[in-house]
Nucleic acid binder design. Structure first.
Lengths: 334, 334
DNA sequence: CTGAAAGCGCTTACAG
DNA sequence: CTGAAAGCGCTTACAG
């Protein structure tokens, strides 16, 4: 029913081996032969069937993106971070290669065993994963012997086929806290959602270091729920306890704090200092605009994807950890 | 190398036909037979290879999502609408079936012919498409004879294998404009980005109707670029020309208008009335909160996906057009 | 460069 | 329920 390599071979007057080789970019053929094959394919509207190719080469040209379990159900709508990562992945995929992306995600109701099923049944060639996972799952990924690029993962174990990409979260937390101190704020709280995560711990540690260097008091507040809603509740608490500044470990929390503080009649950026972490777009869309730490999310996703593609093409080996620098972006809230 | 249906058959002491049928959910087997097959599969860690299945059944269990060309490069980061749609698609896919999503997108540098290539080479079973496309492309999609669900598409042509899902854009524009009039605003501008799109035209038409009913003057402003940035520039213009209200055909534009108006010292919600369209999350995160038209984006995406799955399962036929209702959400800006 | 052959892992009649 | 067979569309040696 569909047009196959045999039809093209017949039309071009060559063997199917030749057609296959021309489309696969293997072996060197004369320009005429190549042209004849391409013309025949064009004429018949031939498109190679990737499922058939996959079956024989054992390469699916499919990449899996695993989103972490602490993301909520409306993953994309509520978490701009993942949007930026996805945009960067798609941009690199389109530029560099014929790979497609499959999204595996605990927040979308998938258990780890369902994710394993899909990795196996779709036979993905490589994995991009964000955040932390338990040892069992990581060992499973290692056992598949496919390249795995971990974004924002701080696990200490060594896995042969993994590479890591992180941001300099410690410096980020330090810069933010120092800025609040430099601006004259004295009672500076830290607001976070995932106290337990190693990544947040880095930001928190450096907040503590900066505060202690100045002889002030550290105060760490932790909540669950959506980042914005948590921010609202942080603000009520900070206000009631006369804090004059807050460092939020993610921008969406800071946006929540800002929203509520304004309702409470607080002049944010003057009476109250506020700094976030991420540098997502909404920080420039609120009023006053949010001071934050830029963690180069797009670059992180793009680099991870390039690293994965290089590894798939055997251009580079795995096992490295890349740490991207971080910058303080001074706007209006501190 | 990998565990196949043959290995499972051997282990379970049955024929490979039986294994295949059990996994495919075909034919009725005794409970013991089924259990034996499942146990053997479990023991060996067997997972069916979807590429092989696809080759023989001619079903890939892959769905393509086509995003429209007027979206910019940072599709997901800048356009919350698409995030909500994607969240809803993934939610339905996980609940109902073993399908995976592939994203095809002009904004991600893909031309229509590249999208065609991917539809063919991946052999997608069905298509979800958002927005408007030229006749050639739609005819191509029809020629593939796979179900196509169009979201927010207003083309008049009839395509056999298409179903359509829209919102009641006319009522939406009318409700928004009436609300501004009812609140006493008199010089009410309309701010839009895609004057030419049939969807925006619906919202604009009903704005015009409402304004004319009241004997006021219609003023339609059109700009290009990112919605938020366009909003900033709309605000400058509206302010300079003493408008006292604006209906923006999408929330992100309204957020831009709001941001700039506040900078200009305008008390939005009092001196200046502002209404958006979409009801995305950011409308409740800005200050004052945005009055808008809720177009049930999540429900739209979920319904589209369910319609597609039903059609793939032959549970329902195509050719319908569903129009979802719309509600005015009164918040603080009007 | 060709051409016949084997095989990737599955499903699908079909005769028993 | 079984079991042998054909075939989906491709790639990959291999002898010429």
């Amino acid at each position: 029913m569909s047009i196959t390599v045999i039809d093209v071979a017949k039309e071009a007057g060559v063997s199917r081996t030749t057609v296959s080789n021309v489309f696969g970019g293997r072996a060197k053929y004369s320009d005429e032969t190549r042209a004849a094959v391409l013309a025949a394919a064009e004429k018949l509207g031939y498109k190679p069937n990737l499922a058939a190719r996959s079956l024989i080469t054992n390469q699916s040209r499919l990449i899996g993106l695993i989103l972490p379990s602490y993301v909520d159900t409306n993953t994309l709508a509520n978490n701009p971070f993942y949007n930026i990562i996805m945009d960067s992945i798609y941009a690199v995929l389109r530029d560099e290669a014929y790979y497609d992306l499959l999204i595996f995600s605990v927040p979308y109701q998938e258990t780890q065993s369902q994710i394993r099923d899909r990795i196996e049944t779709r036979n993905v060639d490589g994995i991009l994963a964000i955040g932390e996972y338990d040892q069992n799952f990581l060992r499973y990924l290692e056992s598949k012997a496919i390249p795995v690029i971990m974004i924002d993962n701080y696990s200490q174990e060594k896995y042969e086929n993994f590479s890591y990409i992180n941001s300099d979260d410690e410096t980020g937390g330090y810069l933010a806290t120092r800025q609040l101190i430099a601006n004259g704020y004295k009672k500076i709280g830290l607001c976070t959602l995932d106290l337990a995560s190693p990544l947040m711990q880095k930001r928190i540690d450096s907040y503590q270091n900066a505060i202690q260097e100045s002889g002030y008091q550290t105060c760490i507040f932790d909540r669950t729920g959506s980042p914005f809603d948590a921010g609202i509740r942080f603000a009520d608490w900070l206000f009631a306890h006369h804090f004059d500044a807050a460092f939020c470990t993610e921008d969406m929390v800071a946006v929540g704090v800002l929203h509520r503080m304004l309702r409470l009649g607080v002049s944010v950026g003057k009476e109250f200092g506020l700094i976030g972490f991420d540098n997502i777009l909404i920080g420039t869309q609120v009023n006053p605009e949010l001071t934050t730490v830029d963690q180069r999310i797009y670059e992180k996703g793009a680099t991870a994807t390039k690293t994965l593609l290089d590894s798939l093409k055997k251009k580079s080996s795995l096992g490295s950890r890349l740490i991207l620098p971080v910058d303080l972006v001074s706007r209006e809230t501190a």
